[in-house]
Design a binder for these strands. Structure first.
Lengths: 106, 106
DNA sequence: CTAGAATATTCCTAGTTGGTAATATTTGAA
DNA sequence: TTCAAATATTACCAACTAGGAATATTCTAG
């Protein structure tokens, strides 16, 4: 989960992921699209790969990269755990202030 | 969006967000729970605040921090844009290989 | 008004990381 | 087998940042 976040937090890696949403691409195509140097793209893809966000399929001397579904789904699950919060406890601040008051009076 | 990711990518800030899911807390309470020093917690909260992930409510000489819904919702929207992908194009790799073949034969 | 608690800020340092350049590796084609 | 294209790897540097220590600020209580 945290590895996923760290991988996505880098702006160029985020752009790479956005690109791959449209479909699989080779390293060179990504470099061209984003105006990045090839070694940098390879390094970013390595990070994304180690985080499990992309998978690679060798094809001749090209490497075709594509997104993997799982980490994004786990991400959604995590975000889902927030949803209840905004509903059930719309603003528990008042409750909290009560709690503080009680402590003070102990 | 990217600021949100960068804020969440730091492990201790992630823990702070997880803590705040259970309800608003003061700086000191966060520091105690996570075994962090107060200045560090203040600094992390500043980053989270500037990213719009938390909001603060001064109460005497305490500052009560709580999560803000919006950035998490935007996050969900972003992730939602992936959902169609795993369905419609389950594995467009074959299609892509066709494309490569065509280019080669041009 | 003073003391102390809670929090923010500043300065410094060490570790991390993105970018570049150069090089190595792999593969198809001549 | 030799060349060129595509990609990965390495070494290096500059920039960023988290952590720690010290200090400043704000507020309450007495």
């Amino acid at each position: 989960m945290n590895e996923t976040l760290q991988a996505l937090a880098e702006p160029n890696r985020f752009k790479i992921v956005e690109l791959l949403k449209k479909g699989p691409l080779t390293v060179g195509e990504i470099a061209d699209s984003l105006h990045l140097r090839q070694p940098q793209v390879s390094k970013h893809l390595k990070v994304l790969s180690e985080a499990g966000l992309v998978q690679v399929q060798p094809e001749a001397n090209r490497r075709i990269y594509k997104l993997r579904a799982q980490p994004f789904q786990e991400f959604q699950n995590w975000l889902h755990s927030f949803q209840q919060i905004w509903e059930g406890r719309l603003d528990s601040l008042d409750v909290y202030l009560q709690k503080l008051q009680n402590k003070k009076k102990k």
